[in-house]
Design a protein around this nucleic acid. Structure first.
Lengths: 165, 165
DNA sequence: ACTGAAAGAAGTCTTTC
DNA sequence: GAAAGACTTCTTTCAGT
């Protein structure tokens, strides 16, 4: 799907203007901290009735403010103790396949996240693998063999902190 | 001496990673997809009793496999429609303050995540801000003024896909 | 738009195998 | 470890304000 978003980014952000009062902010903060927090507890924290709180959360989901609720799984506990950022440059003639390649990356089991960025690189791929051997295999045998890929550059992640406030 | 050849006394218990059977994997997959999925539904999907499922989840949390449950909030819906990766190099004499600086970064409201990496840079900071003006302010007035910071390099993120399987 | 009550559903704990 | 049952708590709906 090709959306011509020349200056639409700014306009979309303004059009998607959402007003959140203090109650909504308390709700979001609670759910961001603990998505399994009972509705009654959230309602109490926000100072509203549980039924009202439930309706608020439903609206927040419908508006797209809340995209979902996910468990935070430790990759190391799953035997993937090595994390890396792989910078991927694509050939210029592979531009039309950008989105498809991005989707392909996301589908890989080792991939934690994909950044599509400006600058001298195209993608920055956050991966979690078992060991350096698995990382080498991923870069050499999975990514570099792709015809779209012009080159890669890998940095090992010593530490990654997601901001979960 | 005795013929203790049971598979339960395997050395997998003291490995750095945790052995997860199929039941655990089903539970993790469910919770990663929807952290608010009812315990009864997870139990049914895993083919175990609800009480057993609850005990499994508790153990997974205690072992650190599950680090938490978080709502996925859209930064754009909160008025932060511009995301960027800021590469931060520190002065070599600021090494002892690496961890403190990392914590400082994480505490900033605009920061989504912080990568501490090998290579020619030290940190890669994932931020979400209101607009380019806010990004300029963050880089110029918040980060660059720090005495530890030797230099920064900013890339705008066109798209970011977290792998939530 | 929010509240409060009430019925149904789900979470939790203890016992039992 | 796993399951069953009792008990507690939460979710959800709906009429009312």
């Amino acid at each position: 799907m090709t959306n011509n978003s020349d200056s639409a980014a700014h306009a979309a952000a303004e059009a998607n203007f959402v007003r959140l009062d203090e109650v909504d902010q308390v709700i979001l903060r609670c759910l961001q901290h603990d998505a399994r927090m009972p509705n009654t507890a959230i309602a109490e924290a926000a100072g509203i009735a549980p039924s009202t709180c439930l309706a608020r959360i439903r609206v927040l989901r419908e508006r797209g403010v809340i995209r979902g609720f996910h468990a935070d799984i430790d990759p190391a506990a799953l035997g993937r103790g090595l994390q890396a950022l792989i910078s991927v440059r694509l050939h210029s003639h592979a531009r039309p396949q950008l989105n498809a390649f991005s989707q392909y990356l996301t589908s890989l089991g080792a991939v934690e996240g994909v950044f599509f960025v400006t600058g001298d690189r195209d993608f920055l791929v956050h991966v979690a693998v078992r060991d350096s051997e698995a990382l080498r295999t991923l870069v050499a045998d999975t990514l570099s063999v792709r015809p779209e890929v012009a080159g890669t550059s890998t940095s090992v992640i010593f530490e990654y902190r997601a901001s979960r406030r």
